[in-house]
């Protein structure tokens, strides 16, 4: 068999098409389960930031059941809030935020207490930051700093600070050493969502 360039091109194209067809078939076969898993992951993030108790080994359908029982969604302005009546701290409202990080997009949830000025929790559930440096934004140590932090500065100006020289105001948390860029971007996206919450979402409902 002559194996000239034309044959090589034909062979590569045929192999490529067969591989692509195989992958398309597998993707179609697994699509519904992958979508269910992605939805469960989303629900898990919301339940976590709202402090709704759930079994950590719960299956996708169990998580969805807990979510549908305890969590309400409310549209205020252009924002969608996920709310939960917490038995100890009262009504909690959480809202999604996102923005560019240093290496890729960062997505998270901001959860506010009933007064809509005190942060109950912050979670960065998706990011591509450097492991060990910027990646630490999703660590409990960093995220837990936000608990009880105000979204208003001492003079009443909305906004939080992720600062490198020691957090001493009620609206400040400590930045991560070696991850200044990531922390700046995190501060920026938090302040943008806080501004949106103040501007409409959080106060007319």
């Amino acid at each position: 068999m002559k194996k000239g360039s034309l044959y090589a091109v034909f062979y590569a194209a045929t192999l490529g098409i067969i591989c692509a067809l195989a992958l398309t078939a597998v993707d179609g076969f697994t699509a519904s389960r992958k979508a269910a898993n992605a939805r469960a992951e989303e629900v898990r993030n919301i339940l976590t930031v709202l402090d709704v108790g759930f079994d950590s080994a719960a299956t996708s359908s169990e998580l969805l059941a807990v979510y549908e029982r305890d969590v309400r969604t409310e549209s205020r302005g252009e924002l969608t809030f996920y709310t939960y009546e917490h038995p100890e701290v009262g009504k909690l409202s959480s809202v999604r935020f996102d923005g560019p990080g240093l290496w890729g997009p960062i997505e998270g949830l901001l959860c506010l207490r009933e007064d809509m000025t005190t942060i109950h929790a912050v979670s960065f559930y998706r990011h591509e930051e450097t492991p060990g440096l910027g990646g630490e934004i999703s660590s409990d140590a960093f995220q837990d700093q936000f608990r009880g932090v105000s979204i208003l500065g001492p003079s009443g100006v909305p906004g939080v600070g992720v600062v490198g020289d020691g957090a001493d105001e009620p609206n400040e948390v400590d930045a991560i050493s070696g991850a200044t860029m990531t922390c700046d971007k995190v501060e920026e996206m938090l302040n943008r969502i806080i501004e949106e919450v103040r501007a409409g979402g959080g106060f007319d409902g």
Binding site: K3, A12, G16, C19, L23, V26, T30, K34
Partner: peptide
């Protein structure tokens, strides 16, 4: 074809790896 055998190998490997990855994800 001998000249493109490595490309063909990588295509086959990639297909199997992605299939496994998709099954894992599902």
């Amino acid at each position: 074809p001998r000249r493109i055998r490595m490309i063909a190998e990588v295509a086959i490997i990639a297909t199997f790896v992605i299939v496994f990855d998709q099954i894992l994800k599902a």
